[in-house]
Design a protein around this nucleic acid. Structure first.
Lengths: 232, 232
DNA sequence: TGGTGTGAACGGATTCACAGCC
DNA sequence: GGCTGTGAATCCGTTCACACCA
């Protein structure tokens, strides 16, 4: 579509590239669309309308169309979106065609849970190493991985060509480990440690905080005056 | 709502209550301020400026002052905020003075990790039950809790007076369990299952999706052209 | 003087509504 | 007729800048 002006078209982009900068909120939803598309396709649907797809992804259809329009025109008016084509397009956009090699630092309960999480392998992520500092854990087999000594972190990250790391360690040692990760060249870190981490520009850090999640639930429950089980 | 105009002042609120409706983004930061305040207080600081506090919480000071102003005036001009007083105020606002009784559904790696997570107990959450469907797990002791049979979910939730639940179960059974939780009266659910869950109005559902987090990291890494370790 | 509290400006994201295409 | 794609309007959240106060 030869859009005249408006929100700055990427000037004559070749191929199906486009999508320079996707808003964070859109990114989150794209991953949901991707899952919904996979389910619909596996259920034998070759196409779906924005209404159906939005329902499956748990969002409203207006925002879905808006999001998808950022990737370019991949729907057919009067019909909908081809599940296969669109899934492929989103996969490309998210950078999931590349193989991501993930190391998990910390082989406690959480680290072990993550290393066995099936949702990773399905989506282009391989867990290539699992580290701990405890002699009780080092050398043990966890989900087919041998727990490595975190003293050799740098060597193993290099050897395994790790390009993404998950921090599942206690708060007090998290910053120190993040520093080591950054120094050896890891630029993408997901942290479960309940502390504020400082990383230099150019490193992407995401945080998941379990206590925060419960605290926010508590706020909403309190707001609604729900202090116990609410029989209907 | 008869909103007159402007940013709608709560008309003449009595007592230190106020704070009808805190924005979601503010809630997330309040939990960060709370942690930062606890650390500062434990380090012996009885007061801190917005600048210091923001630094400790990993945000900028303007948004911190804005957030805190929503709770009422708790700072002293020229001085800052009293750590003790402010921590108490935030604790109240978030509804953390009440005791929250959490049941965890699913005693796999993730469920076990969560049941042992120290960050909960410290913040007014007690894990009161842990469930699973597998005969291999039922009856086993995990972090001082006996794994209960999920067949008796309703009875145990009632007995333990559970008012918050965490779903750490495989996707395919998550909706069914969410339905049972809702039916028995649970109104606050945190789900780790990688599926879209439907819950009725009045039930607060939060989702943590590990695959989504990695996918978003992948996007940013790809944007920056980082496909391997980046030596400095 | 130093630092809070807050209107006002700004920017980003969501919703609305419909033109345009199949 | 049905559904996408998208301007316009709206809502929400952040940043700015400064009046005001201890």
């Amino acid at each position: 579509m030869p859009r005249s002006k408006g929100p700055a078209q990427p000037p004559a982009e070749t191929g199906p590239a486009a999508a320079r900068h996707l808003p964070e909120a859109t990114l989150v939803r794209l991953t949901q669309y991707l899952r919904a598309l996979t389910e619909l396709r596996d259920a034998g649907r070759s196409s779906a309308s924005s209404e159906v797809l939005a329902e499956a992804a748990g969002v409203n259809s207006a925002i879905l169309r808006k999001d998808l329009s950022l990737l370019g025109s991949y729907g057919t008016r009067g019909v909908g979106y081809e599940t296969e084509v669109l899934a492929q397009r989103i996969t490309e956009c998210l950078g999931l065609t590349h193989e991501w090699r993930v190391s998990i630092i910390g082989a406690g309960n959480l680290g072990r849970a993550l290393s066995g999480y099936g949702g990773f392998r399905n989506r282009g992520f391989s867990v290539v190493a699992l580290f701990d500092a405890s002699p009780d854990l080092i050398g043990r087999d966890v989900n087919g991985l041998r727990v490595a000594n975190v003293a050799f972190l740098e060597d193993v990250l290099t050897f395994t060509r790790t390009n993404m790391a998950v921090l599942a360690v206690p708060g007090p040692v998290a910053q120190e480990l993040a520093d080591r990760l950054v120094r050896i060249g890891v630029r993408s870190i997901l942290s479960f440690a309940p502390v504020v981490l400082q990383v230099p520009e150019g490193v992407t850090l995401r945080k998941v905080d379990l206590a925060t999640e419960l605290q926010i639930l508590a706020y909403h429950a309190q707001q609604a005056g729900q202090t116990g089980l609410q029989r209907p």
